[in-house]
């Protein structure tokens, strides 16, 4: 399959890379850009551990081709806050015990980030609905929901 040079804008940085047409965004982020904070839980679009933001909207990077996001602004978990700083939502996850194994955490945080940008003071039901596609097997979701609510305040 013919490879193609592309430019990807990820976390504010332009990356000039060569990809195959069938390379997923997930593969490119993890293997070519070294952004391993984005996780592969299923590769089938069923668990949302691979969620990243495309122009601020959550997408499943395992089902997205890298060539399809040329010209878009991609934000991964590494790009949510700079250096040692934590985004208030990341801080809330830390303080509320919303992180156990941490494998779903990057996708969960990015999904919630978009919700908080869209809905002011979301109710528990709105949060549950927003993250209902992000699977977590450790926490029972309870403390994740608490953290998202706390981040708003």
């Amino acid at each position: 399959m013919e490879k193609k040079p592309i430019e990807l804008l990820v976390n504010g940085e332009i990356h000039e890379i060569v990809v195959k047409p069938n390379d997923t965004l997930l593969e490119v982020l993890r293997e070519k850009l070294g952004l391993t904070g984005t996780k592969e839980g299923c590769g089938m679009g069923e668990c949302a551990a691979c969620t990243v933001l495309k122009d601020g909207k959550p997408i499943l990077s395992c089902l997205t081709l890298a060539i399809d996001v040329v010209g878009s602004k991609i934000t991964t978990i590494e790009g949510l806050s700079i250096g040692e700083d934590l985004d208030p939502l990341q801080e809330a996850f830390v303080q509320h015990g919303a992180v156990q194994c941490g494998f779903c955490t990057p996708g969960m945080i990015l999904t919630a980030k978009e919700l908080l940008g869209r809905v002011k003071n979301p109710t528990a039901d709105q949060i549950k609905e927003a993250i209902s596609g992000n699977l977590c097997r450790c926490t029972g979701y309870t403390k994740i929901i608490e953290a998202i609510q706390a981040a708003e305040g």
């Binding site: 952004l35 391993t36 904070g37 984005t38 996780k39 991964t76 978990i77 590494e78 949510l80 806050s81 934590l86 990341q90 996850f93 830390v94 303080q95 015990g97 992180v99 941490g102 494998f103 955490t105 990057p106 945080i109």
Partner: peptide, 15 residues
């Protein structure tokens, strides 16, 4: 908070 929570929320924990 867990001692590894910050690394996990930043995507820095290495699996």
């Amino acid at each position: 908070p867990r001692i590894d929570a910050k690394d996990k929320v930043k995507g820095r924990a290495v699996y």
